[in-house]
């Protein structure tokens, strides 16, 4: 079920979504996501849905600015691409909400509101940011990952490394916990600055989307190769 006619292609590694808007329809995306559009669409950039939600988005690592594409002058098409290589998924919100990891939000239709959800200590200790993105309402949400996306239907309990979580449904209760030995702190530095060895414990019934790669280990892998002067 979906409100917007859309097609996601080039999955899973460099996925892109093209949305065909009927006359009068709108799609809202993060800025700089637009790859192409038909000239009859109107593009407007601006703050959306109030100061609180706007700031919430900012704290959740998303842009405060939202780009809105409207088919005011007849049907048109826009293609939207996320910033990082990976997959794009569509989810239809049926008077419900979806929680997204930092940076996972790509676009949504009318009827959906995007805000930040304060995680408190949960977020602080997981090392994945203090605020999650919350998409709420009735309509379409498009989100993206780094790597491909796998879906899990949780029926009881599932542990997922915090770095792999992309999105989850509001019916799932979650808790951050340390999983001993999952990834030991190798140096003093990542003891202080790393957020490793943390897992999200999901319980209840609902769906979780995970990505098949994590960004942080990639950065750690690249780090030694960066062009920097060595101190002797």
């Amino acid at each position: 079920m979906s409100m917007l006619e859309h097609q996601i292609s080039q999955q899973p590694d460099y996925a892109i979504v093209s949305v065909r808007l009927q006359a009068g329809q709108k799609v809202h995306s993060e800025p700089s996501a637009m790859a192409s559009m038909t000239p009859n669409l109107t593009l407007k950039a601006g703050l959306k849905s109030g100061l609180g939600k706007t700031l919430g988005r900012a704290f959740a690592g998303e842009s405060m600015i939202t780009s809105t594409y409207s088919a005011d002058r007849g049907p048109g098409e826009v293609t939207l691409a996320p910033a990082i290589p990976g997959d794009v998924r569509h989810h239809f919100l049926d008077n419900s909400s979806l929680y997204l990891q930092r940076g996972a939000f790509l676009a949504h239709s009318d009827g959906v509101e995007i805000s930040g959800k304060w995680q408190g200590a949960k977020g602080f200790f997981s090392g994945e940011g203090l605020v999650l993105v919350k998409a709420q309402g009735t309509g379409d949400v498009f989100f993206n990952s780094y790597g491909a996306i796998l879906e899990f239907d949780v029926r009881d309990t599932l542990l997922i490394d915090t770095g792999f979580v992309v999105a989850f449904e509001d019916t799932l209760q979650y808790r951050i916990q340390v999983l001993k030995g999952s990834r030991p702190a190798k140096t003093l530095k990542n003891f202080f600055f790393g957020g490793e060895g943390f897992v999200c414990r999901f319980s209840g019934q609902g769906r979780v989307w995970i990505q098949t790669r994590q960004v942080t280990p990639l950065l750690q892998w690249i780090f030694p190769f960066r062009p920097a002067k060595k101190s002797d």
């Binding site: 929680y99 959800k117 989850f168 509001d170 799932l172 209760q173 979650y174 209840g204 019934q205």
Partner: peptide, 25 residues
């Protein structure tokens, strides 16, 4: 009955074989 969900305030009402759940926040 069970409390849960991301907010911790969602009330789940199930039948005994858990084939049907009605939930409300």
């Amino acid at each position: 009955l069970e409390l849960g969900g991301a907010s911790g305030r969602m009330l789940f009402c199930r039948n005994s074989d858990r084939s049907l759940t009605i939930f409300c926040e």
